[in-house]
Design a binder for these strands. Structure first.
Length: 357
DNA sequence: AAAGCGGGGTA
DNA sequence: TACCCAGCTTT
């Protein structure tokens, strides 16, 4: 299929659809950047409210760079893949330091920013600066794999290269932004992963997958994820109207978010002896006057590569042992809303009235 | 090249 | 359940 034929079919479809995307109203570098980071592995419907709140709070790169990481993570709370927020913060500082606070226009400069890979660099370059770079996201890979019958796995370099070769040939050099937007809209709204709209599709006479009845078998993915189960036992340590918190460290899920004191083991249930042992690591003089007064088993939480089974154990007492030389600190329950929590804990806190939301 | 990293929607 | 979503970074 010639480029002109492809573009004709694509645009004649795209001209008929309307999709309101707030970041298109004023598609400058900062605008598009924030939206693209938020939308990485995230549906437009899920990310849009976050985008609006982000732009409201931090309208410029400089404002974002001046924010604290805690503030940014709080704004990101519930959206997942929190490294995106940390990397965006780092990139904002890069832009202030290297580019004088002005979002870079050059593709290589954009690609050099933290958290920006080939997709995001192409998206920002084309949408904000008319750069001639074709985007390759999940939508585009699906569209091209089907129309051109590419069965090389798209989660491997060879498959990616095959897709890239096609879109590099097809891209509309007169309007790369329009081309990229139309490709993604087409994948999201017509050439969908499940139940694609093949009957009325402009491409159905040339689409190899459709003609060979292979639409539901393309694209091919090789990778398979095996999920393990982890068991989290959270201690609701209450001292008067305060509870203990800690910040999650680097090297595990939810880096930079806050949580309750945590005991992790291989069991669904926690023995009292394990709690006592945990306390003794904080202060060997601790006696055994503290008892679990209540337990609350949470719903199984699902992440990309693991299942999480969590239980909250409520323990009240005068926990002075946690005041010195530990990662834990006490905060008034009424101030919990100031901290960013994983969704797992956010649900618990909200359901029990500790956070008003 | 493969693994790690969230959470929600859908069939 | 399993798969997918405007992917990137680290190992």
């Amino acid at each position: 299929m010639k480029e002109s034929e492809f573009l004709g079919k694509l645009y004649s479809w795209h001209d008929g659809i309307e999709r309101y995307l707030p970041w298109k109203e004023n598609a400058d570098g900062y605008n598009v950047w924030v939206s693209e980071i938020i939308l990485q592995q995230t549906r437009v419907e899920q990310g849009t409210p976050y985008y609006l709140r982000f732009m409201q709070k931090w309208p410029t790169v400089s404002a974002l760079a001046a924010a604290s990481e805690d503030e940014i993570l709080k704004m990101w709370e519930g959206l997942g893949y929190y490294s995106r927020a940390r990397n965006m913060h780092a990139a904002a500082k890069q832009i202030v330091a290297i580019h004088n606070g002005q979002f870079p226009k050059n593709y290589e400069d954009i690609l050099a920013l933290k958290g920006i890979g080939p997709y995001t660099a192409a998206a920002i370059s084309s949408f904000a600066f008319q750069g001639k770079y074709a985007v390759m996201d999940g939508n585009v890979m699906r569209v091209i794999a089907r129309i051109y019958g590419i069965d090389s796995p798209i989660d491997k370099p060879a498959g990616r290269k095959a897709i890239q070769n096609e879109i590099d040939r097809l891209i509309d050099e007169k309007n790369p932004g329009r081309f990229n937007q139309a490709m993604m809209d087409f994948g999201a709204l017509a050439c969908k992963s499940a139940n694609p709209l093949c009957q009325n599709c402009n491409f159905n006479e040339v689409c190899i997958a459709f003609k060979a009845n292979l639409v539901d078998q393309l694209p091919v993915k090789a990778g398979k994820i095996t999920k393990k189960t982890r068991y989290f036992h959270y201690l609701w340590l209450q001292r008067g109207d305060e509870i203990a918190l800690k910040r999650r460290e680097k090297g595990d899920i939810w880096e930079g978010l806050y949580e309750l004191p945590l005991i992790e083991n291989q069991n669904s249930f926690l023995q009292i002896a394990e709690v006592i042992q945990f306390f003794k690591t904080m202060d060997s003089s601790i006696n055994e006057q503290y008892v679990i007064s209540d337990t609350n088993k949470l719903d199984r939480h699902v992440l990309t590569h693991l299942y999480l089974e969590a239980t909250i154990y409520k323990i009240e007492g005068n926990f002075e042992l946690f005041t010195n030389n530990t990662p834990y600190f006490f905060v008034p329950i009424e101030n919990l809303d100031n901290f960013a929590f994983p969704k797992l804990l956010l649900r618990f806190l909200t359901a029990n009235g500790h956070i008003n939301r």
